[in-house]
Amino acid sequence: MSQSAAPTIRLQNVQKNTSQRKLYFFGALALLLVVVSFFSEQLCPYDPYMQDMSLTKAAPSAEHLLGTDRYGRDMLSRVIAGSKTSIFSTLLLVSFITLFGSLIGIICAWMGRKTDTVLMRLSDMFLAFPGLVFALAVAAVLGGGVHNAILALAAISWPKYARLARSQTLALQAAPFMQAAKMAGSSTFKLIYKHVIPNISGPILVTAVLDIGTMMMELAGLSFLGLGAKPPIPEWGSMMSDTRNLLPTQPWVTLAPGFAIFFSVMIFNLLGDTVRDYLDPKRR
């Protein structure tokens, strides 16, 4: 018996190690993206707004690694500068909806009765609209600009977090340790702060990280449709939209921001998967 037990234990250790290693790897990549977006101004080799009419639509070369667009602006600089708008706005959006949605969900679960009914029916209303179409309508009403695009996407995406936080909190409320904490004389605030939030943050964190990729796509989508960042502000979605007619002749101009979106979304999605695997209690 003891001989057959040993390999099982070793296998579990190997699995844990790979998931931890993957977490560090994708975490480092995601951190790199965030650092690039934070220091984008210092990292740009050229001014992303500087036009050079003598060198328009140039192919990638040693001087301009990703070529230039139709105004002779350096594409590498524009892609790097665009990360500020794309990645930063996405992270802002996701943190906002995570905090706001979870707060609403906890309030619903805790108050119950009327508060719960009113807030949950409200979130049902938001869920009843097809997501991006509703965001389009909101962005169209509010007018263009990155801020309004963020608001539009926040309006449609908070209910997911509210529902998740609500169901998690409701499940917790029945747990004996919550009753024990209540009998220890803990106030409502302390119960939520010390026992509810640490216990529901795992699944919410996983959802949030997995949502970064989706939100980045939707934000780029809104910009592509002209309802996000306004030119000449570099933003990956609007850059693709501006240059899409160049795709057959000068593909690098369109593909540079395209691949930037592709790789960023992929990194954040893989990070989300890894975080989920890492936090999965069955894997421990």
Partner: peptide
């Protein structure tokens, strides 16, 4: 189940003392 999985047993035992 009567102890919070995220807190140590010591945290659970001392919770009422700290609250009071």
């Amino acid at each position: 189940d009567s102890f919070d999985p995220r807190c140590t047993l010591g945290d659970g035992i001392s919770e009422s003392l700290i609250n009071h």
